[in-house]
Design a protein around this nucleic acid. Sequence first.
DNA 1: ACCAAAATTAAACGATCGTTTACTTCATTG
DNA 2: CAATGAAGTAAACGATCGTTTAATTTTGGT
Lengths: 209, 209
Amino acid sequence: MKTNKEEIMLSALKLFAERGFDAVSTSMIAGELGITKGALYRHYQSKQEIFDSIIERMVEQDEKQAQKTNVPVREYEEDAQSYEHTSLESLCEFVNSQYLYWTENEFALYFRRMITLEQYRNEEMRKLYRDMLSSGPVKYSRDLFREMIKNDRLNTDAKELGAQNLAVLLYAPLQLSIQLFDADEKDNETIKSDLRRITRDFEERWKKK
Amino acid sequence: MKTNKEEIMLSALKLFAERGFDAVSTSMIAGELGITKGALYRHYQSKQEIFDSIIERMVEQDEKQAQKTNVPVREYEEDAQSYEHTSLESLCEFVNSQYLYWTENEFALYFRRMITLEQYRNEEMRKLYRDMLSSGPVKYSRDLFREMIKNDRLNTDAKELGAQNLAVLLYAPLQLSIQLFDADEKDNETIKSDLRRITRDFEERWKKK
DNA sequence: ACCAAAATTAAACGATCGTTTACTTCATTG
DNA sequence: CAATGAAGTAAACGATCGTTTAATTTTGGT
């Protein structure tokens, strides 16, 4: 029965996502894997190192995920060039793919819950939660809307409402949909199609006539 | 220096909201109050009892808060009568007052964070989180929209979109606004007025012409 | 000012925490 | 097949957990 680092990380992640880092003991992690806690230390130097490697893994995966989407990368490239070809359509598509990512990708699902539980602990965790799940994506799409307004890709109503509010209107339903998923996973299909309906409505409403 | 139950409850709540129930020790709670942990047990039988009394207190306060709003109470009264006089305007007002409640009422603010950290622990906590903060309010306003559609108080676009999606569109910006507040409390005033702008837009969009 | 009641302290309880140690079992490969 | 290193076990470490106990201090009413 050879346990590897990957298995330990996933078992620990699932427990951290349910109870939070401090509430999960090394015995619990080991128990989940059918080994004793001493054996964990053959693979990781400490419980903290397991946590750190989860973060590291997620940051990597998130960067890969960002590259796959149609929208420009989330890095701070002030280069306006990259924003130039963003369409309302691809932004809405991005929202729907984000829902799938945070609910159906196993690692992303549990990581999201874990970081939700750790967000108020210290500045580092708060920043991670912010960048990946709350104000980060909002700021990011606000910048895209700003550019789209400047380039006259949206209608006059959109210009009047402003980039920040547009970003909130687009991103908020995604956030709530994810929460509804957590409330009852069985509603997944309904939530998914409702979100699709809502983004279609969004697209229709603000596109240039 | 006479410590009372109220002080203990609030100190414990603030710590629970930062770290989660399991991660907070009785020594930490006592330390926050400038006493030793043994003294806590003159007021509460156990650490769990402190937690339980926080829940109890919040449920009471939440019922009071619900009665103060213009919208009908959230109880399961299938009595359609009570929904009859709900207006789009009062629903939007409700959303804005909810933002104030969950960010500026001290007890509600810390309780919300605490229950956010406990939501995945067990079915009881999940239900509490759901009822107070996620699918509960959505279902509640969905029912209101359903009744408003039936009574022909909304325009044809609203009818076509459906009560559930309207509820999501109304409630989601509130949820995200609260998250933005948590991300950076200094933005409170901006977030507040943005939310007001968004609900005004909502009202304008779906009201019967 | 005194005295009972209430509040607090310091110390100890067994349990469990994260981690280390010494020893045993397993799996691979030359 | 024997040997070698990795993987796992069981036990112990000191620290801290939630809780209890006994002694001490503080408080409030007459």
